[in-house]
């Protein structure tokens, strides 16, 4: 396959929106999502020969999107940890993220945005498999069957992971709203 071929172009055009949205749902940032989506298709271009056709092409591409997004999250966390160490060394220079309970604001859009940020942080604290299952099925709208195929696991596992993810999320949000942060 060549980068200029119609084959590759048609694959990219058929999957670019879905891949972009998968990355966005994990990364919550458009620029990072676009960059990661490009990385996904570069990987597709590079390793299409390894695709054995055991899964559907779309499942394979979506799996790469999940992996690449999680890689970036891990990289960010490492950077953040390093930043924390640096801020401890040079006290006062580190950026402090808001962690307290949200204050009431009359503007609904602002309030929604504030709650959304709290939701993202709570999702980020979930165990990785729960985060993947919840993000793909509840947020990105994949069926449990499709989610199971992307995660290379059983339907039952996905159901259980989503159930536990929602339970953990509710507990985490309750703690946040009552002022008790994890």
């Amino acid at each position: 396959m060549h980068a200029e071929t119609a084959d590759f172009r048609s694959i990219v055009e058929a999957h670019q929106d879905r891949v972009l949205n998968i990355c966005y749902k994990f990364l919550h940032n458009r620029e990072d999502a676009e960059d990661t989506a490009q990385e996904v298709f570069m990987e597709v271009f590079r390793s299409h020969a390894q695709f054995r056709g055991e899964a559907e092409l779309s499942t394979w591409i979506h799996r790469i999107a999940v992996t690449k997004s999680l890689d970036l999250i891990r990289k960010r966390k490492r950077k953040k940890r390093l930043g924390s160490v640096k801020s401890i060394i040079s006290i006062g220079e580190g950026r402090v993220e808001p962690t307290g309970p949200p204050t009431y604001r009359p503007d609904t859009a602002v309030e929604d945005e504030e709650y959304r940020q709290i939701l993202y942080r709570a999702i980020d604290r979930l165990p990785e498999t729960q985060k993947i299952a919840l993000t793909l099925s509840r947020i990105e709208g994949f069926s449990y069957k499709e989610t199971a195929a992307i995660m290379e696991t059983s339907l039952g596992s996905v159901e259980s992971l989503v159930f536990r993810a929602k339970k953990n999320l509710r507990t985490s949000l309750s703690r946040t709203f009552s002022g008790r942060i994890d």
């Binding site: 959304r116 709290i118 509710r170 949000l173 309750s174």
Partner: peptide, 10 residues
Amino acid sequence: RVEKTMRLME
């Protein structure tokens, strides 16, 4: 508030 935040996922 928790339920409202959970609904934001959709």
